[in-house]
């Protein structure tokens, strides 16, 4: 039981990085960034490959840079080349599949048997014990959240928020939307890359298909968190919602795994349904209330 809580919390923390990334792209910039799936695998592939060759810490940083590059690609396509934003993400994502295979030495998975990962560095020093994974992940994630919160109140952060919030005021506020969208997507994908990098070293493996559906799961967590936190009101709450939502999602996941309430093969379908319902809920509510009104009037 304790082990389950440990793993759930660890995964909850680490995957909240993807939710944070989607918070930046989907909520703040109002762009559906589909680079996420491929970028997550890219981070994983880079970090695991680097660890394989004995550079686990360096691998994490490389993965962040790789994520940034992927984000820049998508941003470049949509801000400079006029590619519609969703398509830009899909194009980058498709290209990344080959890049990811290349990074992994043209094999579909890499395993880190008896290799060093960042999670083992402290174990040698004899501190932490079984909670070490969680502690490391929590420190990194909370650090990212604090940095992001700080950043969103800086001039650049405010400009990025205004870009997504009101397109009409952008130029009149001396904001260059090309630049703010680029910075936003680069930061978002840096976080996604970091998430992949940490998960790869946690699981001691990288798999070319590990990213399938990550973007939908991330969105589900974001929406769960916002609902629970009654979010969208202030930035600190919204950022914390990413973490809370993820922990809740992972607990549900663990319960399903343990109790076999739903066959585990159905999980992605269920997740997709949750996301579809959650995003559709405002218009569903509206349609329903209209329906109820008309019914009442006809009686």
């Amino acid at each position: 039981m304790l082990y389950i809580i440990q793993t759930t919390l660890t995964l909850g923390f680490v995957y909240s990085l993807v939710a944070l990334a989607l918070f930046i792209s989907y909520r703040i910039l109002d762009i559906a960034d589909l680079t996420t799936d491929g970028c997550y695998v890219l981070g994983m592939a880079v970090s695991v490959t680097a660890a394989y060759y004995g550079h686990p810490i360096f691998g994490i940083f490389l993965a962040i840079i790789a994520g940034m590059a992927a984000g820049y690609c998508t941003a470049f396509l949509q801000t400079r080349m006029g590619v519609p934003s969703i398509l830009a993400g899909i194009v980058t994502n498709t290209g990344l599949y080959t890049i990811n295979l290349m990074v992994m030495g043209w094999s579909s998975n890499v395993a880190l048997l008896k290799k060093e990962t960042i999670f083992m560095l402290f174990k040698h020093l004899g501190i932490g014990g079984p909670w070490m994974d969680l502690a490391i992940v929590a420190v990194i994630v909370i650090g990212c959240m604090a940095l992001l919160r700080y950043f969103l109140s800086t001039r650049l952060g405010l400009s990025i928020r205004a870009t997504g919030d009101n397109k009409d005021m952008v130029a009149a506020s001396s904001i260059n939307p090309r630049f703010t969208i680029t910075v936003g997507l680069v930061i978002a994908n840096a976080l996604t890359g970091l998430c992949g990098a940490l998960v790869g070293q946690l699981q001691k493996s990288a798999d070319i298909n590990a990213g399938t559906g990550i973007v939908v799961i991330g969105l589900a967590c974001l929406i769960i968190g916002e609902t629970v936190m009654n979010g969208k009101k202030n930035m600190t709450r919204n950022i914390l919602a990413c973490l809370i939502g993820n922990i809740i999602y992972r607990f549900i996941y663990a319960i399903i795994l343990q109790t076999r309430l739903i066959p585990i093969d159905f999980l992605k379908l269920v997740t997709a349904l949750i996301v579809a319902l959650a995003i559709a809920s405002p218009s569903l509510k509206e349609n329903f209330s209209l329906y109820a009104r008309r019914r009442k009037e006809s009686l």
Binding site: Y150, S153, T154, R155, S159, R161, N166, M169, S173
Partner: peptide
């Protein structure tokens, strides 16, 4: 509706206007 960001607070909107037009402020100034 065209001149302000609805999901940002009054203070944040003013901060944006104040920081962007200042000559010496850097990207990370608050």
């Amino acid at each position: 509706l065209k001149g302000t960001a609805p999901h940002m607070t009054i203070e944040e909107n003013l901060a944006l206007a104040y920081l962007r037009a200042g000559q010496k402020t850097a990207s990370f100034s608050r």
